[in-house]
Simulated assay, not measured.
Amino acid sequence: MVQQGDQWLASAYVDPEVFTLRPDYRALLILADGLAPGPSDDVTEKMLRAAEEAAPADHPHVVAWREAFRAFGAKPQRTRPSVDALLRRAPQGLPRVDRLTDAYNAVSVLHAVPIGGEDVDRYRGPLRLVRATGEEPFDTMADGQVTTERPSPGEVVWRDDEGVTCRRWNWRQCVRTRLGPTTTRAVFILDALEPMTEAGLATAGATLVDALRATSPEVRIETRTLQRKT
């Protein structure tokens, strides 16, 4: 169990080395408490269909994310930014996972912004974005079994005290902290680079909050933006 919501949000940070790589990076953190998890339903189906219909063929923000991946050695053609992967699936149909994941995937496509959602109560210590040493554990699935991998040295990763929670900035989330059928408290991370503006990021965040409230009317929201200090 992590700290109370406001304390946990206050402890989150981005390592200066990440801002050296991309000074324009911002992360909008949305902490949602009182969520109602469950399978995909009519509400999230409507969200996903609207996103599929409105999905852009390409977007400058997605191009910026491909450039960011290349800057730390990733190959975006092989390990795509999360929003890039979703947009490519939109013409054939977005995945239907569960009501919480469906909600943030729909907003990700609508606003062309990478979004991740994770179970806060499975975190150990503060959330932070760092450049990996290559020694950190990352729990993932391979051939139907949980296995441990290691990030590449210099890779940009989200992590906590126990290990990596998301590899390559927003490429793949770990097994341990992913949303599940018992998740009632989650953090949603919206990743922004130029040319996404402050207003654009705020609008995407507000759309996500509305989507969460549509599926979980009793949800309580706290937010914080992480960005380079000037």
Rank of each mutant, 00 (worst) to 15 (best):
V187F: 07
Q7S: 13
D139N: 10
A71P: 12
P195V: 10
Q145W: 13
T177Q: 12
T133K: 14
P153C: 10
D119Y: 06
R99K: 12
V187C: 03
T140S: 11
T20F: 08
S152Q: 14
V120G: 06
V18C: 12
A12P: 05
L86Q: 01
A186C: 04
G73Y: 14
C166F: 14
R167V: 10
L226F: 07
N105I: 05
R89F: 07
Q77N: 01
R49F: 13
A10V: 06
Y123S: 10
V63I: 12
A199R: 08
P217D: 11
D102A: 01
L9W: 13
R168W: 13
A71K: 12
D6F: 08
A27G: 12
L86F: 13
T133G: 15
R128H: 14
L31P: 05
P60F: 10
E52I: 05
T197W: 03
A112C: 07
E149T: 09
A90G: 03
E222A: 15
A57G: 09
Y104T: 00
D33R: 14
E162C: 11
R96T: 11
R124S: 14
L87V: 11
I30A: 09
V63K: 14
L226E: 09
D42K: 09
M1H: 12
S108L: 04
V175I: 10
A106D: 06
T184S: 06
P195C: 13
T165S: 14
A106I: 01
R88V: 01
Q3V: 00
W158D: 00
A12C: 15
P60S: 12
T207C: 06
V175L: 04
L212D: 05
R49W: 01
V175E: 04
V146A: 07
T230S: 13
V62L: 09
L87C: 08
R168P: 00
R220H: 15
V107N: 04
R224K: 12
R168Y: 00
T44H: 10
W65Q: 00
E45G: 13
L110C: 07
S11E: 04
P37E: 02
V130I: 08
A206Y: 06
R99Y: 11
D160N: 07
V156R: 03
G38H: 03
E194G: 08
G5I: 05
E67R: 12
T148H: 09
T215W: 10
T79N: 02
K46R: 15
Y104Q: 07
A199F: 03
T215E: 12
V62C: 08
R80S: 02
L127S: 04
T225R: 06
A204E: 04
P153A: 02
T230Y: 08
E149R: 10
T182F: 06
V219W: 01
D33F: 06
I189V: 15
P56W: 13
I221E: 03
N105G: 05
D15F: 10
